[in-house]
Amino acid sequence: MTPSTGHKVVLITGASSGIGEATAKLLAERGHHVVLGARRTERLKGLTENIQTAGGSAEYHPLDVTDAEQMRVFVDAARSRHGRVDVLVNNAGVMPLSKLEALRLDEWNRMIDVNVRGVLHGIAAALPVMQAQHHGQFVNVASIGAHQVSPTAAVYCATKYAVWAISEGLRQEVGGDIRVTTICPGVTESELAESISDPVGREEMRTYRSVAIPASSIGAAIAFAIDQPAEVDVSEIIVRPTASHA
């Protein structure tokens, strides 16, 4: 069994910015080895170097979570190098908001591919490894949108509810060896809003994001769940601004 505290091998998708980047820095500071995956390898390289310069342990690999084979290689590389995979943080996500009547099918499909299939690809790659080693933890980043729906966010919220449902189903299936945590951030400082091309959705998000918490707050919640004793499964954490009404 992996120790409940101390050094763990933690894989993080979508690690080049926002919640993924903040989580990587915090976990490395706490003595975990972080394996970083994202498409923007130059940013991953810089983040890895910064972590190492600060005394932490990190490596990075190119990763597009919509490609199941890339995800398998990402997980297998970590297992081959370190002998185990203790945690997979399924964090990669996109949020191009728009009203349904805008009929932005390409953006809907992109959200489904990244936000839902990306998580499923992570589970498919890491679950056999964790089952074979008889321990492990999935941390799936959903959203406050998994619990409430707002205009322009119907498809995004649907994908995040899917993450919540998949996580709960996985938790019930895996038994006592593997932990499953769902993290539901409220409004958080990140680059997600930059993917909004629809003017109505962009304006809606500008108003919604008038109060936001730093990405490090979500990283702290993830660290809390990871650092619990092996017999403690923190199933879900909702983290949002104190001043948020939603």
Rank of each mutant, 00 (worst) to 15 (best):
D67Q: 11
T159G: 11
T152L: 09
H147Q: 14
G55D: 02
A92T: 00
S167C: 13
A153S: 15
K160E: 05
Q131V: 06
L103R: 12
V94K: 02
Q137F: 08
H147C: 00
P151C: 12
D76F: 09
S143T: 11
A154K: 01
I112Q: 00
T66D: 01
V116D: 00
A77G: 10
N140K: 12
S80E: 14
T53N: 14
I144P: 01
G93V: 04
V65P: 04
Q70Y: 08
K99S: 09
Q131L: 14
I112S: 05
E168R: 13
E107K: 11
G93N: 03
D106Y: 03
Q70R: 10
G145T: 02
F138M: 06
M130A: 13
G122S: 08
G55M: 11
D106N: 13
V89I: 15
M71Y: 08
A124W: 06
T66G: 11
S57L: 13
G145R: 08
R104M: 12
T159Q: 07
G55A: 02
D106W: 01
P151W: 03
Q70W: 10
E49K: 14
A102D: 10
I123Y: 05
V129G: 12
C157P: 02
P96L: 05
L97I: 01
E59C: 11
N140E: 04
A146F: 07
Q70P: 03
G55E: 00
A58S: 14
N115I: 07
S143W: 07
V114C: 02
A165S: 15
L63W: 06
L97H: 04
G56E: 01
I166L: 15
H147W: 14
A77P: 00
S80T: 15
H147T: 08
Q52S: 14
I51A: 12
K99I: 04
S57H: 12
R117V: 02
Q52P: 05
Q52H: 06
Y156W: 11
P96I: 07
M95R: 02
M130T: 05
Y161N: 06
A142M: 09
P128N: 07
V87K: 02
H82E: 00
R117W: 10
G55Q: 01
E49F: 10
A125F: 03
C157I: 04
T53V: 14
W108K: 02
R117A: 06
D106V: 12
N115E: 00
V94C: 04
V149R: 06
V149N: 13
V119D: 01
S80N: 14
N50W: 01
Q131F: 02
A162M: 10
L63Q: 03
C157A: 15
V94F: 06
P62W: 11
L103I: 08
V129D: 04
P128W: 06
V75N: 03
I123N: 03
H134M: 09
R110Q: 13
A165N: 05
S150G: 13
V94S: 03
G55N: 00
A58M: 10
L100I: 15
H61Q: 15
H82S: 03
E69S: 14
P151T: 11
I51Y: 12
D106S: 13
Q70H: 13
D64G: 10
D76T: 11
V75I: 15
V163R: 01
F74D: 00
V114I: 13
R72S: 09
H135Q: 06
V139T: 04
H134C: 12
I123P: 08
L97P: 00
S57E: 01
D67M: 04
D67A: 09
